[in-house]
Design a binder for these strands. Structure first.
Lengths: 128, 128
DNA sequence: TTTTATAGTATCTAAAAAGTAACCATTGTT
DNA sequence: AACAATGGTTACTTTTTAGATACTATAAAA
């Protein structure tokens, strides 16, 4: 229901995409942003909570190790940039790259959908 | 850069959301659609590849067990509906629920971003 | 009577992701 | 001399996720 276009056409396009690019484009995206802490890390960096220690204080449940691992993956995937200052004590500043910035509209939708379809309904059903 | 609104304001809103709903709304969404096979399963169901066996033939790398597990999770999360026909051999038809349908625009964006930022660039750099 | 079709389950194993706790280097401050 | 601050690393354990394989039921067709 509610599919305007011809199904088999959309179908072919998708399978073509998968064959053409060697994988599902949605899965490819989710692989980059789907770590347990990555959405929040990306979000905080996007609002200039951009130092390791600051991030840790905002996400006390994310261990140092996990923070490092996730930041390194985000860096390797080209979503964040890591700038090291040659100072003591060490100073490192994380920023979003262009690629990272381009996630903004996506995150906006994911966030809205999550509130409307997951978090708000959950509160209504489990009201203790 | 390229942040029009006041940062600390957006920041407060987000943290408020997390506190209000007890979790990150983006992570909440990704939890539902982030399984290894879920995007493809949802996609195929959305184009009426809607029986267990059909799905399996479309995704030969997804084992029977994984197919079942993921379908059950999608069902539990209210994204797909499972209709069993009392026939022999068994007949089961999967369809998207309203909630599942509401993912369409999200998937469209995720797919486009994945093609532009992940899959296409990858092909250019690793051209053998 | 054996095979085919469908839609699974059950059990076990392997691999990946995440968590815990201790450690490190350097400079400035107490 | 000891401690704080920063931004990590290393080694190990636990938990979660995914994969492999064998098994099930039922009716119809060959």
């Amino acid at each position: 229901m509610r599919i305007e276009e011809n199904n088999s056409e959309r179908f072919t396009n998708m399978v073509d995409n998968i064959k053409k690019y060697g994988g599902c484009p949605v899965s490819a995206t989710l692989k980059l942003i789907g770590g347990k802490w990555k959405p929040m890390i990306l979000y905080f960096i996007s609002v200039d909570v951009n130092r390791f220690g600051q991030l840790q204080r905002m996400m006390p449940d994310c261990s140092k190790r996990m923070m490092t691992v996730q930041l390194r993956e985000l860096e390797d995937d080209g979503l964040v940039h890591r700038k090291v200052f040659a100072e003591v004590p060490p100073k490192v500043i994380y920023t979003l790259t262009e690629k990272g910035e381009s996630l903004r509209p996506l995150f906006s939708m994911l966030s809205q959908w999550g509130i409307e379809q997951v978090l708000e309904p959950k509160m209504k059903t489990s009201n203790d």
